[in-house]
Design a protein around this nucleic acid. Structure first.
Length: 238
DNA sequence: ACATTAATTATGT
DNA sequence: ACATAATTAATGT
């Protein structure tokens, strides 16, 4: 067991991995084939960085399975989570926003499967593949809008509403239906939620305990399920 | 209305 | 047994 390679280019990447995903859905099978042949695939454990803020953007990525959170470090050294990205979306498209370094750190929120391509292919992807440009810029735009909304939330809303909003977004983007309600599909701690809402884990803990007693949410360690989304909607409005 | 500090308990390997 | 998560109370701004 010497020298296990970091990234393996697996022989068996099936076209069906990409055909349904919006950036590639307009393409023919043989185009998907050449795209896949240029890709590297890699599996990440939970809680590891795929790329880091301010590092040279050498590759861009497609999240095939799992969830990643986009993290930025404030000047005071605190982590704030900008947003979560579900499977099926691209990440690290520094090129798309005219940068040659990554604007944030991408950390896996769960075990994840990721494809990546060298960034020098970006321009040809944009040029050669129908629908790739429009779809990627659409998601870039959506994410900018989401981050912008959070900034406004932080300035205008109080913590309970912010936590409510964060939970609502999480169940919308990464929610999984379960008997008792909608569960967030990856392990998430109070600390994580506090980084999403710019508070402390203690406040989040208190808020969640209160909601749990009222039957709005239900939580075990690292697992949160929302029993009553409508109640959260109400709580999120002031 | 919220943070901070600290002490206590629960939970997962 | 040990580390990490979560709760709870007390005190501060």
């Amino acid at each position: 067991m010497v020298d296990a390679p970091h990234r393996k280019t697996l022989p068996r990447l099936d076209e069906s991995l990409l055909t349904h995903l919006p950036p590639f859905s307009r393409l023919e099978k043989r185009q998907i084939r050449v795209i896949l042949d240029q890709a590297s695939s890699r599996r990440y454990d939970e809680g590891v960085a795929i790329f880091e803020e301010a590092h040279p953007a050498e590759r861009f990525y497609m999240l095939l399975d799992g969830y990643v959170r986009v993290i930025r470090i404030t000047p005071n050294g605190e982590q704030i989570t900008a947003l979560h990205i579900p499977a099926g979306q691209l990440l690290g498209m520094a090129r798309a926003i005219g940068r040659d370094t990554y604007p944030a750190t991408a950390m896996t929120a769960s075990e994840s499967l990721v494809l990546s391509w060298p960034m020098h292919l970006w321009d040809s992807f944009i040029r050669d593949y129908d629908g790739f440009a429009t779809e990627t810029y659409k998601t870039v735009g959506q994410r900018l809008g989401e981050v912008h909304n959070r900034v406004i939330e932080m300035a205008t809303q109080q913590v309970e509403q912010r936590v409510a909003n964060a939970l609502l977004r999480l169940i919308n983007q990464t929610g999984r239906k379960v008997e008792t309600g909608i569960e967030i599909d990856f392990p998430i701690t109070r600390q994580d939620l506090s980084e999403l809402t710019a508070t402390t884990l203690h406040t989040v803990s208190r808020v969640l305990s209160g909601w749990e007693k009222r039957g709005v949410v239900e939580s075990k360690r690292k697992r949160i399920t929302v029993r009553d989304p409508h109640a959260l909607m109400v709580l999120s409005q002031g």
